[in-house]
């Protein structure tokens, strides 16, 4: 295998990996402030793409349609938290997780009825042939995927470490009760987390739609990959989500290169199990020590 080919496999892996990473960031964000896994995260991905297509069809220019698609999904994320989750917030994590599963089904069905059952296309952000670097072809849209991933992870890291709001979010992840006693508006934090998670999911959805087309049922599969990436990296930390996503993408593409495309998902998931066995907290996760 030549070095150009190896590089091409790496490009493919990093491209898919960044998509997983963007979805994983959404999982991590909601987990960080609520301690639950939001299984509707994949549907935010789906809505981002579908709504952007919808706005393009309304006649908006592409950049505006993309922004509108992301913002509309954010509104859905906020509304989802307010309508479906907040009334049951004292029911414990299991009930809330099941609500997110139900919510994902509702969002999928609504999208199916609003936008139809067929796949829809979104134009590429920048037209043109792919860029060839050292014999490996890189799609222009892949540059957008990487760019947005970098912006998203930098933004989140800044939010977490440098802002008062981010510190409140981290406090929430340790204890809602204590945070509330310290004067943090936990309800607001949770709602904003869902809004931000929806933005991240939708960003991934709109940036991927020109590559793959989109349809009402793309959410579940990408949600599963994003979830695996978040677990692999370690839940609750944006850098870890990105590491997990890229690792998953690279393992998949190298499995195709050196073993077999038939088993790429099996290999990726076995690796996930091995990592969880050796390091249950994920590659970069911090072990939580229960103090008695």
């Amino acid at each position: 295998m030549g070095s150009a080919e190896l590089l091409q496999f790496a490009v493919a892996g990093l491209k898919n990996g960044s998509i997983y990473a963007l979805v994983a960031l959404g999982f991590t964000l909601v987990f960080g402030s609520t301690g639950i896994i939001n299984f509707a995260q994949g549907e935010f991905f789906m809505l981002g793409g579908m709504l952007a297509v919808f706005f393009v069809k309304l006649g908006l220019p592409l950049p505006l349609a993309v922004v509108a698609g992301v913002l509309a999904t954010a509104v859905v994320g906020l509304a989802f938290e307010r309508v479906a989750l907040r009334p049951r917030r004292d029911s414990g994590p299991l009930a809330l997780i099941i609500i997110t599963i139900g919510g994902s089904m509702v969002l999928r069905s609504l999208s199916r009825h609003a936008f139809g059952g067929n796949e829809l296309s979104l134009p590429a952000f920048t037209e043109g042939a792919s860029i060839v670097v050292a014999g490996a072809a890189i799609e222009r849209q892949a540059l957008w995927v990487w760019g947005l991933t970098i912006v998203a992870v930098a933004g989140l890291s800044w939010l977490y470490s440098k802002t008062r709001f981010g510190r409140s979010m981290r406090a929430c992840s340790l204890s809602h009760e204590a945070s509330r006693l310290m004067g943090i508006d936990t309800a607001r934090i949770v709602m904003v987390s869902f809004g931000l998670a929806a933005v991240l999911g939708a960003l991934a959805g709109v940036v991927v739609a020109p590559l793959t087309q989109t349809s009402f049922n793309v959410g579940a599969r990408i949600g599963l990959k994003g979830f695996a990436a978040a677990i692999l990296g370690g839940l609750g930390n944006p850098i870890a989500a990105v590491v997990g996503g890229l690792a998953l993408g690279l393992v998949e593409s190298m499995s195709i290169a050196f073993i077999s495309s038939t088993y790429k998902d099996v290999i990726a998931l076995v690796l996930l199990l091995v990592v969880l066995f050796v390091r249950p907290e994920g590659i970069l996760g911090r072990a939580t020590r229960e103090k008695v």
Partner: peptide, 20 residues
Amino acid sequence: DETFNLGDTDMTAQLTKMRS
């Protein structure tokens, strides 16, 4: 002889292998 799963977002890895 390469395969992919429904829902996969990129087949460049399979195609690179086929091209060889």
